[in-house]
Simulated assay, not measured.
Amino acid sequence: MSDARFEDGGEGPLRLVAQDADDLRVISTLVQDAVLPVTEMKHDAKRRRFALLLNRFRWEDRSEAEAVGRAYERVRSVLVVEDVLKVQSYGFDRTDNDLVLSLLSLDFAAGPDGTGRLTLTLAGDGAVALDVEALEVRLDDVTRPYRAPSGKVPTHD
């Protein structure tokens, strides 16, 4: 069998931008249970940008996959946060190059004049906190969907 293709589902890759809390909830739902090696998290202080290369479960395709009896899918996606002033990580070792992280949610706590803190909550009590000048988060699918290796919908205990 071959991997799924965007053309098979009649849909294209996701390209979303969040600039407020409501928009961020949509992106947070779509990246829930995305996995990534710790090495695929980068902060470019000069450009004030933080980026992650994710293996995202395609929640938007779950019902369709179940309805037609085909495999669940994942897709490689880039999550980019702009205007990052400060990055802090908690509960995991950023120097452990073999570590694989699971992203659970994105939450924004607004501060004065559009500033705030974006928290990326990870499974296992880890988190990444990003102090931002303004909320701007982009999610872009960068590959074609592929069969989810586990063949299962992610679950939480």
Rank of each mutant, 00 (worst) to 15 (best):
N55R: 12
N55G: 14
N55S: 14
R56Y: 09
R56M: 08
R56C: 03
F57Y: 15
F57W: 04
F57N: 00
R58A: 05
W59V: 03
W59P: 00
E60R: 03
E60C: 09
R62H: 13
R62D: 10
R62Y: 02
R62E: 14
S63R: 12
S63K: 13
S63G: 12
A65P: 01
E66C: 06
E66A: 05
A67C: 05
A67P: 06
V68R: 13
G69W: 12
G69T: 09
R70Y: 04
R70G: 02
A71V: 13
A71F: 00
A71C: 11
Y72R: 05
Y72I: 09
E73S: 12
V75Y: 06
R76V: 13
S77F: 07
S77W: 06
V78G: 08
V78I: 13
V78C: 05
L79F: 00
L79K: 02
V80C: 07
V80G: 01
V80R: 06
V81E: 00
E82Q: 10
E82L: 08
D83Q: 03
V84Y: 02
V84E: 01
V84M: 02
V84S: 00
V84C: 00
L85Q: 09
K86A: 05
K86I: 06
K86M: 07
V87I: 12
V87F: 04
S89N: 14
Y90M: 11
Y90G: 07
G91Y: 10
F92A: 12
F92D: 00
D93C: 09
R94V: 14
R94M: 13
R94S: 13
T95P: 11
T95L: 11
T95R: 12
D96I: 05
D96Y: 04
N97T: 14
N97A: 15
N97P: 00
N97F: 15
L99K: 15
L99G: 11
V100G: 02
V100E: 13
V100I: 14
L101S: 02
L101H: 04
L101C: 14
S102K: 07
S102R: 11
S102M: 09
S102L: 03
L103H: 06
L106E: 10
D107R: 12
F108Q: 00
F108E: 03
F108A: 04
A109V: 14
A110M: 09
A110R: 13
A110D: 10
G111F: 10
G111Y: 05
P112K: 15
P112C: 12
P112Q: 15
D113G: 14
D113N: 10
D113S: 15
G114L: 06
G114T: 15
G116L: 03
G116H: 04
G116P: 02
G116Q: 08
R117S: 08
T119N: 04
T119W: 04
T119L: 08
L120K: 03
L122V: 10
L122F: 07
A123T: 06
A123N: 11
A123V: 06
G124P: 09
G124C: 09
D125Q: 05
D125E: 07
G126I: 01
A127K: 10
V128H: 05
V128Q: 07
A129W: 04
A129G: 04
L130P: 00
L130C: 05
V132T: 01
V132C: 02
V132N: 05
E133F: 02
E133Q: 06
A134I: 08
A134Y: 07
